[in-house]
């Protein structure tokens, strides 16, 4: 039975990864406002994605304002592609993906 990557399958993290897959990098503020998340929630999810090696976090300054930007790693990109493939396999075999 095909397994789904739990780090990717979680709805908020899946959205973060999908968003980052379309751009080179995005900062904390962009992710927070676009996904409509609270600071703490986004921070917790991005930390988990960083621990998994799917997202790279860069801390810097935008002028004098601290800025944290995120980009998808190669591992994250390949896991995201593998996730969609696994999801299709589950559905085509008549199974239901875990919620």
């Amino acid at each position: 039975m095909t397994e789904l990557d739990a780090d990717v399958h979680q709805p908020t993290r899946l959205r973060i990864l999908m968003l980052l897959s379309g751009v080179d990098s995005a900062d904390f503020n962009f992710l927070r406002t676009t996904l409509g998340l609270s600071k703490g929630n986004l921070s917790a999810h991005t930390s988990r994605l960083e621990e998994a090696g799917y997202v790279e976090i860069t801390k810097g300054f935008n002028g004098k304002i601290p800025n944290t930007s995120y980009c998808l790693t190669e591992l994250g990109r390949s896991r995201l592609a593998a996730y969609w493939q696994a999801l299709e396999e589950i559905r085509s075999s008549g199974g239901t993906p875990p919620s």
Binding site: R15, A44, R48
Partner: peptide, 10 residues
Amino acid sequence: AASPEIPDET
């Protein structure tokens, strides 16, 4: 992309 506020299960 509007995401439901689902806390990280950790």
